[in-house]
Amino acid sequence: MMIRFRFLFLTACMLGAAVQAFSIFQTADASIQVAPTKSNFKATGAAKSDSPAQLVTANSKTRVKATSAGWVKLAGGETAAVVRFEIENGWHMYWENPGDSGAPPLAQLSAMQGWTLLEPIFPRPSILKTADDTEFIYNNSWEWLLPIEGPAGASPPACSFDLSWMVCKENCEIGRARVEFAAAVGDIPPAGAVRLGRSIATMGATATFNSKDQAITIFGDAGKTANTNSKNSSANTAQFIPAIIPGVSLKFTGPFQAKLRDEKFTLNIPIEIQPQNALGKPIVFKGLFLYGQLDSDCCENIRLPLNMQVSQP
């Protein structure tokens, strides 16, 4: 069975000056309340000074500061709240699939009639390898996009998100904060590649499932890596990190390294399909195809429904 797929979001990978020029959406209420943070907190990437949207932030007990960083428009038309995390030096938070251990942050939209929180968008993570574990993490600072959906044509009203996260170093801590967003006013700017950090569509990667060999094959166009920030040899590398895929067992956590041949990245990932572990949901092979080696390089969202029959839990 050969299944082809295409990616979720649209914009091409336009890193650099064009995105640097991206301005944060102005909100109606520019009041700033920043709660005190731990004294040893080291802000490694202060929120942009032109952001008036830093309304409520902070968690004084843990190693993370969370701030609102305005609204952006996604390619699909949804509006997303941008939460900026700044993490104390040496500590890290987790991607949607934390890897061997950890847990991703969670968000809950405050009760707001007619509006719902869609699936959060995580940017490209770093890969942390230790003797025992591989983890997909964020350190320093990163931005999390929380798309919300409401009445057609309506701009997001003032709202808040209750966030919780796990932040780890040698040990782990749980942090919580409520981050408030002022109502969106005026035109909402597009998210841009840097903010999305993934799903940089039209990079040309395809994935197929070979049922005979029980393997996923991913092809990526190496020529497209010219858009990456990696130089020379590092630009000619690609790897895949899997999301959490109930019903699919992989040999290891990843990352899976692609081979470069004839300007094509090729990656073969043996899988074991376990419908009994799909938790009653359709089995979808998914993850991120990472071009280059730098955290700021492009990546592409891979999503391949396997159309397996799964039993109800």
């Binding site: 934390p98 003797a131 109930p246 009994q276 572990n277």
Partner: peptide, 20 residues
């Protein structure tokens, strides 16, 4: 069924002498 799920929580940090 299910016989395998993804666990969540803190990483088990094993003694370094065992890490090889």
């Amino acid at each position: 069924s299910p016989d395998k799920t993804k666990s969540y929580g803190c990483g088990v940090k094993y003694a370094k002498s065992q890490n090889g």
